[in-house]
Design a protein around this nucleic acid. Sequence first.
DNA 1: ATCCAGGCAGATG
DNA 2: CATCTGCATGGA
Length: 271
Amino acid sequence: MIAKIINNQTIQVEDLTQFDPYAILHSGQVFRYWKNDAGWLVMSGNHWAKICLNGQHAQITCDDAKYFYQYFDFAIDYQIIKQSLTAPKLRNALVDGGGIRILRGDFVEIVLSFIISANNNIKRFTKTINEICERYGTLTACGQYGFPSLTQCAAITEQDFKQMGCGYRAPYLVRAIQQLKQLDNTYLAQLPNTELQRELLKISGVGPKVAACIMLFAFHRLDIAPVDTWIKKAIAQLTSTEQANILHGPYAGIAQQYIFYYLQHLQREVL
DNA sequence: ATCCAGGCAGATG
DNA sequence: CATCTGCATGGA
């Protein structure tokens, strides 16, 4: 067991080898988190959680323990998954990112966040995402604003998005929000990868890479590995066999996360 | 100044 | 189907 629900607002994490808050939050799958004196505050949709490390354990205090037990994917044992990622050149990345987990992010937040991420840099679009929340989301009990609901999103105009730094993506976002209103999250969740991708590609501003991010970070398709500029640079150094081992296995998405964190955040040079 | 950032839409072979 | 180009914006 990795973690257990203590009560409606509390989760106790027992196994920190499978839960590294710093690595999880800096692995590019969540953009609304803050450090405080006690640990970390993270938001997903309009839910919030505070993570506090104390010695061999971590305590998560949140607005909805069931939500965050799912969000942090505590039901899955990543130890077994890690043992299956045997590509030699993955070893260093795996050592440093061993406590990363793939989160079950909020569908609307993930879709809109990654549309904004396209041809953008993390620091810049993180600022944009937070401004969208502060201007159009609802203030929660943790002191931060939730990601705006679809109804709240529908009030945001193209001009508003441009003011918040979305640039040429502003019209895509307005269109995407209208399209999201017609989509049933539960229906999408049961589709196989190819059909899910086909549906996601219909959303304005969503191409193959953003679709892959949505599939991995919102629909938990662990075999999908988003290939961005960082990953492209990394795998260019590998043989085609090594590339296949890393990017086409049943847990390619997790392998990709280890690499992304290792390269992009830890600023390592090679795999 | 030029290039780049978790790429995509639209136009053109 | 594959390939090419323009694109908002801020930081290096």
